[in-house]
Design a protein around this nucleic acid. Structure first.
Length: 496
RNA sequence: UCCCCUGUAGCUCAAUUGGUAGAGCGAGCGGCUGUUAACCGCUAGGUUGCUGGUUCGAGUCCAGCCGGGGGAGCCA
């Protein structure tokens, strides 16, 4: 649990916050997670909790119940406010969903059902009011995800989005932990790139030129020599080429950071700004790459199941009944390795046997989602690693196989989602690489530094890419990647 | 970018082949209660996305624009 900041106390912060109110000497500042677990405190202790009101329920017997959450865990703590408090009528009974409060009181065993312990308050200090409860955008009721998307600054106060934030953090930590513990170095590949050769999609231009008055060359083209970098630059669409260079000195490396695609894609699986994980390993072939992908995915999903049972229980109960079972099956299964060529034969047999697909199948076509789903869900029933695709449907940097018609590419397919990882062994032979660059109509001059890697101590190497938001959506059952990133960027949408 | 659906109260949605715009939730007030998605009653809350058109009459039909969603393509 050392990686979980909510589990640790930060007394130096807690005691240096501004507007510190008088507090009984014995009051222990504590976060809700630890309070509910009686970790670092026990029944009878005087504690202080700070957070936001989820609901208030009044009892005319002369007390009120406040559900106070602070983001440290899924549950809120019940703070019992006796009617004897000085500000009971003037302030406590005016608290509404969303107000922030600072409470001190005694931890007691709860008389009610639904919680084992609660806080019997000595003081309740409203810190920030909700100025108009009638128009507070996220009252305690059901909201559609579409509506909450337009309230991205407030939606994290809901059960669902605070749970997503914790899952996202947990998985990110698990990613770094897996790589760190396996001897990988995290490489901070550039966000602004001068490479125009990544070939992974439409790019966002980065420029300080005056759009109202663009400098022109004598030929009438835009004169990028006058731009900030003295050339045209873009936001990165992939760190792969850069991280390959570091791989060929550090042996095992990865990138994990934001990536940008200016594609006009309007789907539940695409974002203009998303986070991608791209490991790269040297002295490795495609089988090593598949091994890595399998160990990696099992590691991060195992961590999620172990570290956030309450949040995952919420997703199971309210979002997707199967999400926990799916992850448990995933981490226990051995991945099936299958050749693309064999997969096509299996699919063709299935069609002959009466299975209906919308798109036809034959050797040389890229598999559609329906084909991938059928293979992993119906035919194998476990995760599948498809390997060695036709070279004509894959990128220039993928290593050509001896058969002359396939490349060492792989996709990891998972039940319930389809493709979750795409990777390949990279072409390490300069002559073969140059031939491929030429065949695809690209210019070897643009790849001068990438080609250098093949001139100076080249080595077989491989890697893969994993979309972080798709991984979170898969793990939680959330249907739209726009709801698993705090501030989604999509075509015509970048409000926050 | 293409196809389909959609836009009505703070939110989720009704509104009969075009005829006075309603409910639930939320909110406010009152009642009841160691409460737990509380419950009961009352109240407030709308230029039906925008612009134009057809019509005696448009939330409803037509055109354009803008927004949202789903699917496809592209991909992660």
């Amino acid at each position: 649990m050392t990686g979980d900041p909510a589990a640790r106390m930060l007394p130096h912060l807690s005691t240096s916050l501004p507007m510190e109110p008088p507090m009984p000497d014995s009051a222990i500042p504590i976060r809700v997670k630890n309070l509910l677990a009686c970790s670092g405190c026990q029944v009878g202790d005087t504690v202080r909790v700070q957070g936001w009101i989820r609901t208030r329920r009044d009892s005319k017997a002369g007390l009120s119940f406040l559900q106070v959450h602070d983001g440290s865990c899924f549950d809120a703590v019940q703070v019992v406010a006796p009617g004897e408090l000085d500000n009971y009528a003037t302030e406590v009974q005016r608290l509404t969903t969303g107000c922030s409060v600072r409470c001190t009181g005694t931890i007691v065993a709860s008389q009610g059902k639904g919680q084992s312990v609660e806080v019997l308050a000595d003081t309740i200090e409203p810190v920030g009011w909700v100025e108009d409860p009638d128009t507070y955008p996220v009252p305690a009721k059901r909201h559609s995800f579409e509506y909450l998307r337009e309230m991205a600054h407030l939606r994290v106060r809901t059960n669902t989005f605070s749970a997503i934030a914790r899952v996202r953090h947990c998985l990110a930590q698990a990613v770094h932990r897996f790589f760190h513990e396996n001897g990988f170095y995290w490489v901070h590949t550039p966000i602004i790139t001068g490479s125009d050769c990544e070939g992974a999609g439409e790019m966002f231009r980065v420029s300080t030129l005056d759009l109202e008055n663009l400098p022109r060359t004598e030929e009438g083209a835009i004169d990028y020599t006058q731009d900030f970098f003295g050339r045209d630059t873009n936001l990165t669409v992939s760190g792969q080429l850069n991280v390959e260079a570091y791989c060929q000195a550090l042996s095992k490396v990865y990138t994990f950071g934001p990536t940008f695609r200016a594609e006009n894609s309007n789907t539940s699986r695409h974002l203009a700004e998303f986070w991608m994980i791209e490991p790269e390993i040297a002295f490795a072939d495609l089988n090593d790459d598949a091994d890595l992908a399998e160990e990696f995915l099992k590691s991060i999903f195992t961590a999620l199941l172990q570290e956030l049972p309450d949040d995952m229980g919420f997703f199971r109960d309210r979002i997707d009944k199967t999400c926990i079972n799916r992850l448990e099956s995933f981490v226990e299964a051995s991945f099936e390795r299958m050749e693309y060529t064999d997969a096509i034969a299996i699919l063709e047999q299935a069609v002959a046997g009466g299975v209906k697909f919308e798109y036809p199948v034959s050797w040389g076509v890229d598999l559609q989602s329906e084909h991938e789903r059928w293979l992993t869900e119906e035919h194998v029933g476990r995760p599948v690693v498809l390997m060695n695709y036709p070279r004509d449907i894959k990128a220039f940097y993928m290593r050509q196989n001896d058969d002359g018609r396939t490349v060492a590419a792989m996709d990891v397919l998972a039940p319930g989602i389809g493709e979750i990882i795409g990777g390949s062994q990279r072409e390490e032979r300069l002559d073969v690489l140059d031939k491929r660059i030429g065949e695809m109509g690209l210019d070897t001059a643009d790849y001068w530094w990438y080609r250098d890697l093949r001139k100076y101590g080249t080595v077989p190497h491989a890697g893969f890419g994993l979309g972080f938001e798709r991984t979170i959506a898969y793990a939680t059952g959330m249907a739209n990647v726009r709801d698993v990133i705090p501030y989604p960027r999509t075509p015509r949408s970048a409000t926050f």
